[in-house]
């Protein structure tokens, strides 16, 4: 059996996942990467994207995380992120609505800050929709 390690996804609102897994893969700001057991200690920043997790029984799960940080220390991996949802929890209607709103906001002339916020919202909504379609 493959070696396992502890994995946690924590947001300010709740602990989204806490369990023993075989491996994960995520999108870092420097590119996608995977983590297996006995990974060297690491801290990295995440992009808004999908985190794939293979749990101890070999089942894969997907999570959509909005940015955040990932830390690996002695077979304990923690993801700290603003919002994170599990596959199956996506509210497609809401995600579509948010996507539309973000696109409209982008089309309008606004300050750089507003644009940035809309961009982030669009990315998040897209990731949610992607998550809803992965399985």
């Amino acid at each position: 059996m493959a070696k396992t390690f502890n994995f946690e996804i924590v947001t300010p609102v709740r602990v989204v996942y806490n369990g023993v897994v075989q491996g994960i893969s995520a999108d870092g700001t420097e590119g996608s990467f995977g983590v297996l057991a006995d990974h060297a200690p690491m801290i990295t920043e995440l992009k808004t994207g999908i985190i794939m997790v293979e749990d101890s029984s070999g089942k894969t799960m997907h999570f959509a995380a909005e940015g955040g940080f990932l830390e690996v220390v002695a077979n304990n991996v923690v993801v700290l992120t603003d919002t994170c949802i599990k596959e199956g929890e996506v509210d497609i209607e809401k995600a579509r609505a948010e996507k539309d709103a973000a696109e409209k906001a982008l089309a309008k002339v606004g300050s750089a800050e507003e644009k940035e916020r809309a961009q982030a919202a669009l990315k998040r909504a897209n990731t949610w929709l992607k998550l809803a379609n992965v399985h």
Binding site: E30, A40, T44, E45
Partner: peptide, 25 residues
């Protein structure tokens, strides 16, 4: 921590984002 830490992209870049987040939380 003992041993090497892999830090991507760089300590300062992560700090730049992590720090405001820390104050917020």
């Amino acid at each position: 921590l003992v041993g090497e830490y892999i830090i991507e992209p760089s300590v300062d870049q992560i700090l730049e984002h992590l720090f405001p987040k820390y104050i917020e939380t």
